[in-house]
């Protein structure tokens, strides 16, 4: 083949061998860059704009004036967030509700994951499938299911009234209690699965050794099992906590008008008030809160992959 000029196909093949690697890296990189990373910069930009009656409804940040760019940064949105107790309350509420829900999810999920990890063969596969199944059915519908149970005319009230335990229907829906139930219910599989995968990999002989050496079961659990399952606890907790902070659907459908959560506030600012700059600054403030847990999660995700290799 030497001497003759390469055909276009050969040239293409050679180019592919040389640059294919970059192409493979490039496709996901470019896509995620454009549609995941850049959007945050735009949110940041618009959080410094002022709301205007225009299309789109915010002021331009950069303006060409004579020979230079005129940059009009407006910190007012952030000052507004800090000064209006609504937002501060919503942030604190979200973090508290998410944290409490995470703990409850962990308390319910841990024994389940432990049992599944210790069971064998077919039982284990069936139990795992039962955990995963609700995760595949619609999230919205699972939240909706609780409306029928917790409502004023719902199932619990009907049962309690029928049994004569209460004479007035209890208010359960549209309370913070209902929001806890909703979050724990929908996020439980996210807690169980990472817990299961660390517990399953754990060396059972360590606990046996502790027991053989006269350690009491509870102590063996606290001293051996619990520390060893810490990565799973962390991963599960972050998988529940981070999205729960920004949850919108659950407080909207199950919570009351007083259940302020930041995701809901952002939604209202955007859809009801059409104040895009304020919505953006709410988002940026939420991200600042979540940056540390997100980095933590990413590290965990990375180190787990490192072990597998």
């Amino acid at each position: 083949m030497s001497g003759t000029a390469p055909t276009p196909k050969q040239r293409f093949d050679r180019w592919m061998v040389r640059n294919g690697r970059y192409l493979v890296i490039g496709i996901p990189f470019f896509w995620l860059m454009l549609f995941f990373l850049v959007p945050f910069l735009i949110v940041l930009k618009i959080s410094f704009a002022t709301a205007e009656y225009a299309q789109p409804p915010y002021s331009a940040l950069f303006q060409w004036v004579d020979q230079g760019i005129n940059i009009a940064l407006n910190f007012g949105n952030y000052l507004f967030l800090l000064s209006d107790s609504l937002y501060v309350t919503a942030y604190l509420n979200s973090i508290r509700i998410a944290a409490i829900s995470t703990v409850i999810t962990l308390l319910i999920g841990y024994p389940m994951a432990y049992y599944i990890a210790r069971s064998s063969g077919t039982v284990r596969s069936v139990l795992l499938m039962l955990v995963i199944l609700p995760f595949w059915t619609s999230f919205l519908i699972r939240v909706y299911a609780w409306i029928g149970i917790l409502d004023r005319e719902g199932l619990i009230n009907a049962a309690l009234l029928g049994l004569g335990i209460i004479s007035e229907p209890l208010i359960m829906r549209q309370t913070e209690f209902a929001v806890y139930i909703g979050i724990v219910y929908t996020y439980l599989p996210f807690m169980i699965l990472p817990l299961y995968s660390t517990l399953e990999k754990m060396d059972g002989s360590l606990v046996e050794a502790a027991l053989d050496l006269g350690c009491r079961p509870w102590k063996a659990f606290a001293r051996v099992t619990l520390p060893l399952s810490l990565p799973g606890i962390l991963a599960g907790s972050l998988l529940v906590f981070i999205p729960a902070v920004g949850e919108f659907v659950i407080p909207e459908l199950l919570g009351g008008p007083n259940t302020l959560m930041i995701g809901r506030t952002l939604w209202d600012e955007f859809f009801a008030n059409r104040d895009w700059p304020i919505a953006s600054s709410v988002a940026i403030a939420m991200l600042l809160f979540l940056v540390v847990p997100i980095m933590w999660f990413q590290n965990l995700q990375g180190s787990e992959k490192g072990d597998g290799k």
């Binding site: 998988l239 999205p243 919108f248 953006s280 999660f297």
Partner: peptide, 20 residues
Amino acid sequence: MVAAPLVMPEVITGLSLLLL
């Protein structure tokens, strides 16, 4: 960029994409 979307609150992702 692969790990973050898994946990990112949906309101943030939605808003940021819309603004993009």
